[in-house]
Nucleic acid binder design. Structure first.
Length: 627
DNA sequence: GCCGTTTTCGGCCCGACTGTTTTCAGTCG
């Protein structure tokens, strides 16, 4: 059982417990464990062997025992028993908008609904509106939700969402009521796929902005519309959420709306420890509490503060104070959030205010996933992330010698105009016929032609390479004699993607151990939304990459983004060198670099972790040293 | 179910919108 499989089981357990109306914190514990395991850069089986399961944050005695059981037996009795009470197909209906755990439980109990098919049937027969708490509108919304699910059950790839969001932002920027506008949510964090598009606006006239927003041309349907928050569906059936706040709250709102949810929770928990309340409107502190309250509070764990508030009416009696330490650095006020009259805002115009208030440095958006960034920040140990300007060359671009649409010269010129010091033309090898792979008889002619271009080009070094296929048995697609003519050999798998994990791993390892390969391109072969990654043993791949000095690629092609963030981070931690290439097939594709950089930043990579940040001499030297 | 810079008990983020209700539960992010 690997990390993802185990994470999935805990995720499902959380959903079942939710339907069973279990303790919400227990549910949160399972959900948290699921997320942590999914984001782990180490193989959980290895942690098991080393007896380190309990060292995983969010995993205590109970969940650790369940992980052990899963690894030892491949099964979990607790989970099997839960499934008997709540059929798994019932979890499916929670994917329908408007249906959460409570509604699912109700539908299951009263109408024996346990699938989307039966749900639709019940709607059409108007059985749902007769249930308590349900009405005609709910029934209609459920039907709409079912239809919408068919259209939007897939997350949008990052590039598609970015394109749409930028167009919407451009329209919103034109409105005179709009003071500030920003993309937020997972899109701002540059996740590889996006659920819906979040946009934040600062404005003094939220109502006017909302009205204009919902009447923009791309809007097909309004899903909800309130004073400050509205959701619409685009013509392509994509959801766009708009939130409007005052300018003074823009920073806090941007932080909150950017997330991730888990990151936000941790930040707010830090706030609580400091006696602060952090929400999307700002950072707040209790107002005008006389010093003696703190002293009283120390003696009495829970103390009714109402008598000390300005408004001494009964409505304050719900405010209780609990002091956690005598220096006032940690206290919590229960009920405080319900009484806004006593608050004092101490920040929130800038996103930085939020981090300042809890003693953190500014955390780059790509890191905000609760993958250790808060702990690292508290220790002042955040990495200085790689930036797009750090890249000095693109080592994986195609020309019209194979399936690219531009000439060598045009590709080189385009790379130069982007300020690169070097570029490597890597066309496909002979076996990849669909991509017009370069035949052996053309091989040397191509090398000579690229060398010619290099001689004539000023201001950029044009290197000769090839993207060489790894065949079904792990052999390279050209003989050694030809490969030695090249500056760079990139090896990749394009065929036999469905071979078993062991075999695929061995093929890639063979290529790395040949002594002829510099880079492994798109190591997992996935195409977002089209093709799953093929299965390989990352532990083995990283180990061999480290031993042989072969570089692993982060491919910037927006459908690939391969390695992904988690694997790239794991590779770096194992001491593997990485490279960010675009796999361009025309000059425009060179702009894809931003997606590769996004992956690298989400993987916590620094400039020195990525070899194409090196100046040309150092880059070439590093290749030679390896050989 | 997890966790602890006084805690092994008693906490656990915070708010908007909708629909069905006459004050709030459910859902969502």
């Amino acid at each position: 059982m690997d990390n993802l499989e185990i994470a999935k089981i805990f995720y499902r357990i959380a959903n079942i417990l939710e339907i069973k109306n279990e303790n919400t914190f227990k549910i949160r514990a399972y959900r948290k464990a699921s997320e942590v395991i999914e984001n782990l850069t180490q193989n959980i089986n290895k942690l098991y062997e080393e007896n380190k399961i309990k060292s995983i944050p969010g995993v205590g005695k109970g969940i650790a025992e369940k992980i052990n059981e899963l690894i030892e037996t491949g099964k979990l009795k607790y989970y099997e028993d839960l499934k008997k009470e709540v059929p798994e197909s019932l979890l499916e209906i929670m994917n329908v908008a408007e249906i959460g755990p409570k509604t699912a439980a109700l539908l299951h109990e009263k109408l024996k609904i346990d699938s989307i098919g039966k749900l639709k049937d019940a709607v059409l027969k108007h059985k749902i509106s007769k249930l308590p708490g349900m009405g005609e509108k709910t029934e209609k919304n459920i039907l709409k939700g079912i239809e919408l699910l068919k259209k939007t059950n897939q997350r949008i790839p990052l590039y598609e969402a970015m394109d749409l969001a930028e167009k919407i932002v451009a329209q919103l920027e034109k409105l005179k009521e709009v003071k500030k506008v920003s993309i937020a949510g997972s899109l701002r964090r540059m996740r590889e796929t996006i659920g819906d598009i979040d946009i934040l606006i600062a404005s003094g006239s939220p109502k006017k902005v909302t009205d204009k927003f919902i009447s923009l041309q791309f809007v097909k349907e309004v899903l909800s519309k309130g004073a400050t928050k509205s959701s619409v569906l685009t013509n392509e059936a994509r959801q766009v959420d708009l939130r409007i706040v005052a300018e003074e709250s823009f920073g806090a709102a941007l932080h909150y709306f950017t997330g991730s949810k888990e990151h936000n929770i941790k930040i707010r928990e830090l706030g609580i420890k400091k006696g602060l309340k952090i929400n999307e409107y700002g950072i707040f502190t209790p107002l005008d509490l006389p010093a003696k309250i703190w002293q009283v509070g120390i003696k009495n764990k829970n103390y009714d503060l109402s008598q000390y508030f300005k408004n001494k009416d009964k409505k304050c009696s719900h405010i209780k104070c609990k002091l956690r330490s005598d220096d006032m650095s940690e206290l919590s006020l229960t009920g405080f959030k319900k009484d806004k009259r006593q608050e004092k805002m101490i920040g929130g115009e800038q996103e930085k205010d939020v981090f300042d208030s809890v003693g953190l440095p500014f955390i780059p958006v790509e890191l905000r996933e609760d993958r250790g960034e808060i702990e690292a920040g508290l220790e002042n140990n955040l990495p200085k992330l790689i930036a797009i300007e750090d890249i000095r060359g693109d080592l994986h671009v195609h020309s019209n010698w194979s399936d690219g649409s531009n000439t060598v010269r045009e590709m080189a010129q385009a790379a130069k105009s982007r300020g690169y010091e070097y570029v490597c033309i890597c066309d496909h090898s002979k076996s990849l016929v669909v991509a017009r792979g370069v035949k052996e008889e053309d091989f040397l002619r191509r090398v000579r032609q690229i060398r010619e271009v290099d001689k004539k080009m000023k201001g950029i070094k044009v290197l000769v390479g090839s993207e060489v296929d790894i065949d079904f048995e792990g052999r390279l697609d050209y003989p050694e004699k030809l490969l030695k003519e090249l500056d760079i050999v990139i090896a990749s798998v394009h065929m036999g993607l469905k071979q078993p994990r062991k075999k695929l791993t061995k093929r890639i390892i063979n290529a790395m151990e040949s002594g002829l390969v510099d880079i492994i391109a798109h190591p997992t072969g996935r195409l977002l939304g089209e093709r799953e990654a093929y299965e390989i043993d990352f532990e083995e791949i990283f180990k061999t990459a480290k031993e042989t000095g072969v570089i692993l690629e982060i491919n910037s092609h927006p459908k690939r983004m391969d390695l992904n963030d988690i694997n790239a981070r794991a590779a770096k931690e194992k001491g593997v060198k990485l490279i960010i290439n675009t796999d361009s097939h025309n000059t425009m594709h060179l702009d894809w670099l931003k997606f590769g950089i996004a992956v690298a930043r989400r993987a916590w990579l620094k400039e020195e972790d990525v070899v194409n940040t090196y100046p040309l001499e150092k880059f070439l030297k590093s290749l030679k040293e390896r050989k």
